[in-house]
Deep mutational scan, measured.
Amino acid sequence: VPQRAWTVEQLRSEQLPKKDIIKFLQEHGSDSFLAEHKLLGNIKNVAKTANKDHLVTAYNHLFETKRFK
């Protein structure tokens, strides 16, 4: 089981690129989880459509539901 890579403050910070969060989610989330949160596909394309709040919610949801690969 992966550990949380970032704190809530870090997740919301401008310093953390959306692409980093997407990469983490794609590496650790199950396909059904990723599909549900519309996070499947090319990281660049996902970054265009997903806002930061959406990614933070998905990140927290992944750990709450433990839907890891």
Rank of each mutant, 00 (worst) to 15 (best):
K69Q: 07
Y59F: 04
L62K: 00
F63H: 04
K69Y: 06
A50V: 15
N60V: 14
D20M: 11
H37E: 05
D31E: 15
Q15T: 11
F68Q: 02
K69T: 06
D31V: 11
G41M: 04
D53R: 06
D31C: 14
E64F: 08
H54F: 09
V8F: 07
L39H: 00
L25I: 07
H28V: 08
R4L: 06
L25F: 04
E14K: 13
N42G: 10
K48F: 10
K18E: 08
E27T: 09
E27Q: 11
Q3L: 10
L11P: 02
W6F: 06
K48N: 11
G29R: 00
W6K: 00
I43L: 11
K19Y: 14
A5Q: 15
T65I: 03
L39W: 01
F68M: 02
K69P: 07
L11W: 02
F33V: 00
P17M: 09
N42F: 10
V1Q: 13
I21Q: 01
A50N: 08
N42A: 13
F24H: 03
K66E: 09
R4I: 05
K19E: 15
S30T: 11
K38I: 04
N60G: 08
Q26E: 02
Y59I: 03
H54I: 09
H54Q: 12
R67I: 05
K48V: 11
S13E: 06
Q26L: 09
H61W: 09
E27H: 08
S32P: 07
L55M: 04
S30L: 06
F63K: 02
A47R: 14
H61A: 13
N45L: 15
A35Q: 10
N51R: 07
D20G: 05
G41W: 03
L62P: 01
K52W: 07
S30R: 06
H61Y: 11
A58R: 01
E27G: 07
T7D: 12
A50S: 11
P2I: 06
L39P: 00
H54R: 13
K69C: 07
T49H: 13
V1A: 12
K19Q: 15
K19W: 11
K19T: 14
N42I: 10
E27A: 10
H61E: 15
T49P: 02
N42T: 14
V8Q: 14
R67V: 06
Q3F: 09
N45D: 15
E36N: 06
A50Y: 08
A35G: 09
R4N: 09
K19D: 15
S32Y: 08
S13H: 06
P17E: 10
N42H: 12
E14T: 13
R4F: 08
L25Y: 00
K52T: 05
N42K: 14
L11E: 01
H28N: 13
L62C: 02
R67Q: 13
H37C: 09
V56N: 03
R4T: 05
I43M: 08
K23C: 09
L39C: 02
Q15W: 11
I22N: 00
V46T: 06
A35L: 12
L34P: 00
Y59T: 02
L11H: 03
Q26G: 02
Q26H: 08
L40S: 10
L62V: 02
K38P: 01
F68T: 02
Q15N: 12
Q15C: 11
F63I: 03
Q15M: 09
F33L: 02
A50C: 11
D20P: 05
E14C: 09
L11R: 01
L16G: 01
E9F: 03
S30W: 03
L39K: 00
G41T: 04
N45I: 15
I22F: 04
V8A: 11
V46Q: 04
L34G: 02
K38M: 13
T49C: 13
K38V: 07
D20E: 13
K18L: 08
W6V: 03
H54L: 10
V46E: 03
R4D: 07
H37Q: 08
D53C: 07
Q10F: 07
T7E: 06
N51W: 06
H54C: 10
E9L: 04
S30Q: 10
T57M: 13
G29Y: 01
A47V: 14
G41Q: 04
H28Y: 12
K23R: 10
K44L: 15
F68P: 03
A47W: 06
E14Y: 09
A58C: 08
G41R: 06
Q26S: 04
Q26N: 04
S32V: 08
T7I: 03
N51D: 14
P2S: 04
L55R: 01
V1N: 12
P17G: 09
T7A: 04
P2A: 05
H54P: 02
A35E: 11
L34Q: 04
D53L: 08
G29K: 00
L39G: 00
L40K: 09
E36F: 08
V56A: 14
A58V: 06
L34R: 03
T65H: 15
L16F: 10
K69R: 14
H37R: 09
A47K: 12
I21T: 01
D31H: 14
V46M: 07
K69I: 06
E9S: 04
T65D: 12
H28K: 05
K44G: 14
A50M: 12
F68H: 03
H61D: 15
N45Y: 15
H61I: 11
P17I: 06
L39Y: 01
W6N: 04
H37D: 00
N51L: 09
A5L: 15
K44N: 15
K52Y: 12
L11G: 02
Q15A: 14
L25K: 00
N45W: 15
E9Y: 03
F33Y: 06
A5V: 14
V1Y: 13
L40Y: 10
E27L: 08
S32F: 07
S32M: 09
F33C: 01
R67G: 08
K52H: 04
Q3R: 09
K23H: 09
K66H: 10
Q10L: 05
N42V: 10
N60H: 07
I22S: 00
A50P: 03
Q3N: 11
L40N: 12
K18C: 14
H37N: 08
F33P: 00
L39E: 00
K69L: 05
H61F: 09
F63R: 01
K19P: 08
L62S: 00
K48Q: 14
E9P: 04
W6S: 03
H61K: 10
N60E: 15
S32H: 07
Q15R: 09
K52S: 04
I21E: 01
R12E: 13
S30M: 07
V56W: 04
R4A: 08
A50I: 14
V1I: 13
L34N: 04
E64K: 07
V1D: 12
K18N: 10
K18S: 13
N45A: 13
H37T: 05
P17F: 10
Q26V: 06
G29T: 01
P17H: 15
N42R: 09
K69F: 05
H28I: 06
K38W: 09
F63L: 03
S13V: 02
A35D: 10
H61L: 12
L62F: 04
T7F: 03
K66A: 10
D53Q: 07
K23P: 01
E36R: 06
T57F: 13
H28L: 05
I21Y: 01
E27F: 06
T7G: 05
I22K: 01
P2W: 03
S13M: 03
P2Q: 05
H61G: 10
E36W: 08
V46R: 05
Q15H: 10
K66N: 10
